[in-house]
């Protein structure tokens, strides 16, 4: 890394740190932006770098949300009693219980999702191309339906978590820094990972999996490890989201296959598949476009979003990074 790069990254880091103070009215928006960046980057790990387009990564978001909530509740109360719809008793959390529960729950969510990815991946990685996409989508939808019928964790009405103890505005900052911190760690992790032999091996799987097999690369092991790492980070942000949202339910919030589950794919396509910066740029662009349409074209927002998806998929497949690489072929790929 040369000095110019270091200055660039330090400046970005400083901007990340002070952004909620520069735009105090947009703290939750910025937190959501980091959520989009994280899910886009994790989607690109399998979709862009390894050539496995999953439509079911939302599985880890929803599962992370539930696991974090159940762990943090279970550390203090009986989960079944807490989620009981007819509950009259007041169940509270002390400040200490809230933070310990949140931290343990969120990390536990990440780990649980990694294991889930290995189990689900062991079955679905036998599928290729569109079959993998549909297969993973099916798993995510099925998981949402299962959870919404599981009374112990609240069934269809979901779970309500305790509100952030303390100042409401500090709470917004707390969640912003949790999301942003996860995003920064993930970015640095991927920047390193893609420069190792591991990165080369998953690129080989993307470019020609049969050849990679014929050369003795442990393809299944790489695929499972990659997805498990991606699922870890998605589980973490899922867990954080649960605490940020306070209340969530299975189909529209946790396992939101048609919203966030698709948004993350569009972010990556918009920014450029298989690049380190593509998902980041794509997520920023997408989130901006999405919020503008939601604000100024209300009623037409889904149409606008659909049009954006169609245009991206049909005319702009290489995304911003691909377009830049095309215009300046000599410049090294970021």
């Amino acid at each position: 890394m040369n000095t110019k790069n270091i200055i660039f990254y330090v400046a970005l880091l400083v901007l990340t740190a002070i952004a909620p103070f520069l735009f105090p009215d947009f703290r939750t928006q910025l937190a959501t932006l980091w959520l989009m960046i994280v899910v886009a980057m994790t989607w690109d790990m399998t979709g862009g770098q390894m050539g496995y387009n999953s439509l079911g990564n939302i599985l880890f978001y929803g599962t992370g949300m539930y696991v974090a909530a159940v762990i943090s509740i279970g550390m203090v109360h009986d989960v079944g009693a807490y989620t009981d719809a007819g509950r009259l008793e007041l169940m509270t959390f002390t400040e200490r219980q809230y933070f310990v529960g949140a931290i343990v729950g969120i990390i536990g969510a990440g780990l649980f999702c990694s294991v889930t990815a290995i189990v689900v991946g062991y079955v679905t990685f036998g599928l290729r191309g569109p079959y993998f996409a549909i297969g993973t989508l099916g798993v995510a939808i099925a998981a949402g339906e299962l959870v919404s019928n599981w009374g112990w964790i609240g069934g269809g009405q979901g779970i309500s978590l305790p509100v952030y103890p303390g100042n409401f505005d500090v709470g917004k900052l707390f969640f912003y820094y949790l999301f942003a911190g996860t995003g920064v760690v993930l970015f640095m992790f991927l920047k390193w990972l893609y420069s190792t032999r591991f990165g080369a091996a998953i690129n080989a799987i993307r470019d020609d999996e049969e050849k990679a097999e014929a050369m003795g690369i442990h393809t299944m092991r790489y695929k499972l490890t990659t997805w498990a790492m991606a699922a870890f980070f998605v589980g973490i942000v899922g867990g954080i989201s649960g605490f940020q949202l306070i209340h969530f339910e299975p189909l529209e919030t946790a396992y939101q296959t048609t919203n966030l589950g698709i948004f993350m794919v569009v972010c990556v396509l918009l920014g450029g598949k298989g690049t380190l910066w593509g998902p980041v740029i794509g997520a920023i662009l997408f989130h901006f476009i999405k919020e503008v349409t939601w604000n100024y074209f209300l009623g037409w927002q889904w149409v606008a979003l659909g049009a954006l998806i169609v245009v991206t998929v049909v005319y702009f497949q290489d995304g911003v990074m691909g377009w830049l690489a095309h215009r300046k072929p000599q410049s090294p790929r970021l």
Binding site: T196, A201, G216, H218
Partner: peptide, 16 residues
Amino acid sequence: ISLPHRKMKFLDAFSK
């Protein structure tokens, strides 16, 4: 990419 993976341990994959 064609380096012999059979002679590598799993953690070797995380080196450059």
